[in-house]
Design a protein around this nucleic acid. Sequence first.
RNA 1: GCCGCUGUGGUGAAAUGGUAGACACGGGGGACUUAAAAUCCCCUGCCCCUUACCGGGCAUGCUGGUUCGAUUCCAGCCGGCGGCACCA
Length: 853
Amino acid sequence: MSQEFDPSAIEAKWQQKWEEAKIFEIDLKKAKDPYYALVMFPYPSGDKLHVGHWYNFAPADSAARFMRMKGNDVMTPMGFDAFGLPAENYAIKSGIHPDISTRSNVQTMVKQLKRMGCMYDWSKMVNTSTPEYYRWTQWLFLQMYEHKIAYKKEAPVNFCPKCQTVLANEQAQDGTCERCGTTVVQKNLNQWFWKITDYAQRLLDGHKDLDWPEKTKIMQANWIGKSEGAEITFDLVGHAEKLTVFTTRPDTLFGATYMVLAPEHPLVEKITPKDHWGAVKAYRELVAKKTELERTDLAKVKTGESTGAFVINPATGEQIPIWIADYVLVTYGTGAIMAVPAHDERDFDFACQFELPIKPVIDPDLSTSLFSHYVYPQYALAKAPGSNIVGGENERWNKECREDILRGGKCWIGPGRLINSGFLNGMDVDEAKKRMIAWLEDEGKGRAKTTYRLRDWLISRQRYWGAPIPIVYDPQGKPHPVPEKHLPWLLPTDVAFKPTGKSPLTESKEFIERTEKLFGKGWTPEFDTMDTFVCSSFYYLMYLASEGFGMMAPHFSETKEGKSEKNHLIDPHIERTWMPDSMYIGGPEHACMHLIYARYVQMTLKDFGFVSHEEPFKKLVHQGLITNKGAKMSKSKGNVVSPDSFVERHGSDAFRMYLMFMGPFTEGGDWSDTGIKGIDRFVKRIHAMFTANVNKKVDQPDVMAALHRTIKKVTEDIEALRFNTAISSLMEFLNLLDGEGGVSKETAKTFTLLLAPLAPHLAEELWESLGGKGFAIEQQWPTFDPALTKASTHVIAIQVNGKLRGDIKVPADASKEDVLEQAKAHPNVAKFLEGKPPKKEIYVTGKLVSLVI
RNA sequence: GCCGCUGUGGUGAAAUGGUAGACACGGGGGACUUAAAAUCCCCUGCCCCUUACCGGGCAUGCUGGUUCGAUUCCAGCCGGCGGCACCA
């Protein structure tokens, strides 16, 4: 019957034909309907491509092929995020230079990717570790420097004393070194930052125009962490200096009974009197020794120390004590808080621990009078109308509070009305916030203030395998940018990979000599390299920067005719045509890193005038995660599944269809190869049907109706990336043809085109054998005739009181009356009607009758 | 703790207010074969009635609600996954 079917041979044949015809190479300037289909570029790991990559790339390719057949000029590029730690760690272990291992990994992965048969435009490939690429990473740094976005300040790094290396946060996760288990220490280094915080509001505002998963936008919004509140200034007792705090609850100022500074706060030394200094210093040292994990452990008891200093609460005029405690973070707000223990859980815990006064200022009970006989149900405090709990009663109050903790009491953080709060009394929380801010502004003691959790981007890495920061220091240590004409500022190669505790580039003689030769004696280069997230923050532009600009034009850094010409990243016309990217597909793990950095860099480039759009990625989709035995695939767990043997056995078409058929693209799942057989059979049956059984002149009307329904379903499903159901509807149609014993040539060709995005090689082979002209991928996507999708008869389900009691077959144009009549006449239905007329009769056209008795 | 997602046969799943389990895998039975593989055909959620046909009941994590009708919408609870986590 069917001739020998050899997917490997077919796939190799068509991959070669596609390449020879260069049909996937896009002329960026001539595109009329540009569609930029982008996937997150991979890291060229020694693990090669695994099924997770396939699960990302293959369906993305199917979607891109579909868009091409719909008539778009589709550009879908591929590249490598090639700088980074794994190659360097491998070099430390093996002595093999990262450039060599990276190039070899890239080569292997390109080969594997080509075996997939995706329609990548390889002429536009990028590799972030090549000088042609990283000259632009450095150019970006210079732009940031010129626009005062790049700045230097001291910041701690994780350092492993045993390995003598700086560790990324992910490598130091539970406070110990990932590799040797040694306790990680914090070291302060002078490092480069990019001011991303200036863009916090724009990063939030931009979300509204993005077709992104809501989940991802929420994650970013939480990461940016906008808080609105007030900054309040407190006068210190006996000092000229003032203490400023940030609070989201200015309404509770009357309830602020003490202050807390972060242990690292600079005022601590100035305000602590001698008799408290010993204890304060000891506490600071204790905190400094704690690991990040110990410090952020929520289960632990709160610790702290009194400074012996006081401030004046501007609302009450009372003196309140200043403490230091490590539950206050020096990195957020002003590094200091006003503590309102009655209405903040952390302050409440702390106050109970150290017996500090707790003064309620919010009455949670909105339904009863302001002067209810107790303040909180939890506290069960007797309270006379109008009395002030704190005044003169601190001792008793604390005692009862502590008893209450033993009973599981808590503070009140919800809404309510203000009490014990002078001019705020009786107001609700929102109103009181506004009134308090207005009062503070009038008094010159505070103002409305918005704070973000987002921190500036630390881009310095004390690592070798990254783009060198293009900065040199004069003999006085003042930084100067490396002029653009010296880009790429090459990564030196005379470096051994033995960790010394310093940035590896400090070992390079060539690097230091080069700097002195160009800039003068005593000048030194910046020895740190850039975070790899910098490299990946603009790579989507570099794919487009191929003609006369960007990567292919290093000469652009030269001056022409003595004029100083500005370096441009990208041809403005191409940028306007192709950006923002039409579809971006990649993993959700990048929600708060790459996907924020790329948006930020795009915004800065727009501000500098190099691009025309504020947002790089208009539509974003996350593919699901493929796990193995419930765990994320990783080399260290030894559970990485290689696609190669499956591809060899079943072919790329079958393997990619299997991945798509497994379930919804965005959901992923646990890896299992049971079921690949089903797709294997499907592929073989398709081949048999459309080579040996194209034996009909015309197809029956019901076959034609099914065909048009299939076109409709497959079109809508691929558009929505529902590849699993697209494939199952093709299976259903093939099952129907099997029943018919054959198919017409016209229908065979249409089916072949429907298959083309999903099984591209097989589709080409069938297209050729059916006598189609050109490539299948170059054909118009089939359209359906809505009139033909309609069936001539309907099966109507009949429900009595919501339960299915039978069904009837009626012509599609049957009237409601006829259908109801027939439904009631159905013997099993009549049995349940018991001869009585139904109370209610509902007819859903073409589908169902519902009778109520 | 907070935020988000998720829960359906032995398995992957489908159906987003209208016949729950499409399409597959696996399993059982049969055909072909010396045999196996491959291929093809039939059966396959659980329970009850029945020789059989025809029927009936239960079932989408749990408990309620809205509706003629709920896997789908609403409320509360339980389990799983992911993110953030002393952010004032």
